[in-house]
């Protein structure tokens, strides 16, 4: 029973964080473009904007295309949202504060987040829309290409810590400059690869060919409206927030930080927001690159680089420089 309550609270906390991270992104983007961003809904600085957006989307008409594959079309947002929420299950927000600190935590995260693509296909196919289908095809392309570098980059801290358990990885990063991002050479390169692969896996500019607004309108979600659209948006941002949390945990020491232990979750959130802002910063600074360039970056640069990095990490750990218990 306590598990259910914790899960319920956690789920709602995540939805709240995800809602407000969209406001953060809009404000951040506005700053970069010398604008103010959302301002009028709620004082100060339009802080009620996410709530208003959610209400608006709930009240919108739900349109189902006549020639759509009805079951697939209707189920797609749920199938898309489910893995995006499940990934939070293994993340410990402080020592002992998490749903399930599995001994294969990182692997669980990677495996479940790989399921996201099924919902994406269902949306792209079920809509029976050329743009949506093209978008889904591009998504397959991109996800096949960037899943492996993402996994290899995420495995570097796992090898360094000698454990796939999330809490053990954090514990291995204790001490001054103990965070894996400070690990000489390997840490910085792995973090860089992780961030690049995250941007690509989340389909954000400059890797956003699957929802390139000028070509595909809105990609695989072009036919969705109202709450279904909201669920897809929620899933997308939840996945990005989850990946930011994982990045903060793997490379930036999770809940570790100065001050009393109850500040842990706050540090963790701050670090995750930092990773999120890094991704957002890239998004609002660069232009979209071509499909062939995206694939070339993955197969010719990122994949070999991360494999070599992982091998090097293996040698370093075998030489006795690991941080495992």
């Amino acid at each position: 029973m306590t598990h259910l309550i914790v899960a319920f609270v956690l789920l709602n906390a995540i939805i709240l964080v995800v809602a407000y991270i969209t406001l953060l992104e809009r404000k951040f983007a506005a700053r970069m473009q010398s604008r103010i961003g959302p301002y009028y809904v709620g004082w100060p600085h339009g802080w009620l904007q996410p709530i208003a957006d959610a209400l608006k989307l709930m009240l919108k008409e739900d349109v189902v295309p006549t020639l759509s594959d009805r079951w697939v079309y209707n189920l797609a947002p749920l199938v898309f949202l489910l893995p995006c929420m499940l990934i939070f299950a293994t993340i410990p927000f402080a020592p002992g504060l998490g749903l399930a600190d599995l001994n294969i935590g990182v692997l669980f995260f990677l495996a479940v987040s790989a399921l996201e693509i099924v919902g994406l296909f269902m949306g792209g196919w079920g809509s029976n829309n050329k743009y949506a289908l093209l978008s889904a095809m591009r998504a397959v392309n991109q996800i096949i290409s960037y899943d492996l570098p993402f996994i290899f980059a995420a495995l570097v801290p796992v090898v360094l810590a000698g454990s796939m358990q999330m809490s053990a990885i954090v514990v291995a990063q204790q001490g001054l400059f103990g965070w894996f991002v400070f690990y000489p050479g390997i840490g910085q390169l792995a973090f860089l690869a992780y961030v690049i692969a995250t941007i690509a896996a989340e389909n954000r500019v400059p890797f956003d060919i699957l929802e390139a607004e000028s070509e595909l309108v809105a990609g695989f979600r072009v036919e969705y409206s109202g709450m279904k659209f909201a669920l897809i948006q929620l899933g997308e941002y939840a996945h990005l927030v989850g990946t930011s949390f994982l990045g903060a945990l793997l490379f930036l020491g999770g809940w570790l930080g100065p001050g009393p232990t109850w500040l842990g979750p706050l540090w963790f959130l701050l670090k995750a927001v930092l990773v999120f802002l890094l991704v957002t910063w890239v998004r609002w600074s660069f232009v979209r690159i071509r499909v062939d360039q995206i694939l070339a970056i993955s197969w010719k640069l990122l994949l070999p680089a991360t494999v070599i990095l992982l091998l090097a990490t293996g040698f370093v750990v075998a030489a006795g420089f690991g941080r495992g218990a």
């Binding site: 669980f108 495996a111 399921l115 899943d147």
Partner: peptide, 11 residues
């Protein structure tokens, strides 16, 4: 379980 998801459902 994780490997099954990663390789089959994902891959």
């Amino acid at each position: 379980f994780a490997v099954q998801l990663l390789l089959y459902a994902g891959g």
